[in-house]
């Protein structure tokens, strides 16, 4: 195995460990919140007058298993390794089942949203760079500036009014951020001496842009791709609430309103792990493209 491959593998291991640490910390935070939440260790069945004193004692003995904090942590983390995140307080369902039910909608929203935002941002970036006319840049920048000045909730509301799906609103919220960064990166590459030399030798604009400028900008755009996953989750939360899309973002909001801390912490931990893995993948791809910086 080459030295560069070894470095990339080492970086991948570090990133995976970081993601695992975040999940572990989120699990511990969740366990702490559950352990010290009001009503912990009590069971509403104890109020059932039909139960005998022996049955109530048995219930209490069952609940007393978690009185020791360390035992409780061990049991909670053991549950996480089996995909058991405990029960939601807002919804009478296991948290893992809730996440499984809601994940497809969010994956769809974020997937389509990212695809649309990236396509539009790259298309406008390449158009503005190829045109090299202030008018095009002003129009695209003004559109991006207008969208960036609106909260994601309002963009979600506009999408609802226009009868567009939630993914459309996520794309509209992401586009200005992606366009601004991509435009700066591509423009700075366009002004490099070797690009000027290529153009001076008569290579067409389209070929220069697609084969030289885009390739040179790829590492920075890949880094942005990693960050854009995090931004997409940030935009998905308010948009899913406003657009009434039953995804992870809406679930987190319902958990926050119902002060369902175990559910909220679990969802946050899962989203954090996904974004960390996304960032790790982007960094590794970036290092593979630029082995000298690995």
């Amino acid at each position: 195995m080459s030295v560069v491959a070894q470095r990339i593998l080492r970086a991948a291991c570090i990133r995976l460990l970081a993601a695992a640490a975040v999940v572990l910390l989120a699990g511990l935070a969740g366990a702490t919140l559950v352990r010290f939440a009001p009503g912990f260790g009590t069971d509403e069945r104890e109020l059932d007058s039909r139960l005998s004193s022996e049955s109530i004692s048995a219930l209490r003995a069952h609940n007393a298993r978690d009185a020791n904090v360390l035992v409780f942590y061990a049991r909670y983390l053991g549950g996480i390794t089996h995909g058991d995140f405990g029960m939601s307080r807002t919804f009478p369902q296991p948290i893992s089942q809730l996440v499984k039910e809601r994940a497809p909608a969010t994956i769809r929203n974020i997937g389509y949203g990212l695809a649309m935002a990236w396509s539009l941002a790259l298309a406008l970036t390449l158009t503005a760079t190829a045109a090299q006319k202030p008018a095009a840049d002003i129009v695209f920048s003004a559109a991006a500036g207008a969208l960036i000045s609106l909260p994601a909730t309002v963009i979600g509301l506009l999408a609802v009014i226009a009868r567009k799906p939630a993914s459309f609103a996520i794309a509209a919220a992401l586009f200005p951020l992606l366009y601004r960064y991509a435009r700066n990166v591509v423009q700075s590459e366009w002004e490099r001496p070797w690009i000027m030399a290529a153009r001076a030798r008569g290579i067409g604009k389209a070929r220069t842009l697609l084969r030289h400028v885009l390739c040179a900008s790829a590492p920075q755009l890949l880094a942005l791709a990693g960050v854009s996953l995090n931004m997409a989750f940030g935009a998905a939360l308010p948009v899913e609430v406003i657009a009434d899309s039953p995804g992870i973002g809406q679930l987190a909001w319902q958990a926050a309103l119902g002060r369902d801390l175990p559910l909220l912490v679990t969802v946050t931990g899962i989203v954090a792990a996904i974004t960390l893995l996304g960032n790790a993948a982007a960094t590794l791809a970036q290092q593979a493209l630029q082995p000298e910086q690995a």
């Binding site: 970081a18 975040v22 919140l33 960050v227 995090n230 989750f233 940030g234 939360l237 308010p238 987190a252 909001w253 958990a255 926050a256 002060r259 801390l261 909220l264 912490v265 969802v267 946050t268 989203v271 954090a272 974004t275 960390l276 960032n279």
Partner: peptide, 21 residues
């Protein structure tokens, strides 16, 4: 490394968690 980790976290989800506490 800590800053990178912090930047990778979904801050709106974190904000909701802290606000709900």
């Amino acid at each position: 490394a800590g800053v990178d980790l912090f930047l990778s976290l979904p801050w709106l989800f974190l904000l909701l968690t802290v606000r709900a506490v």
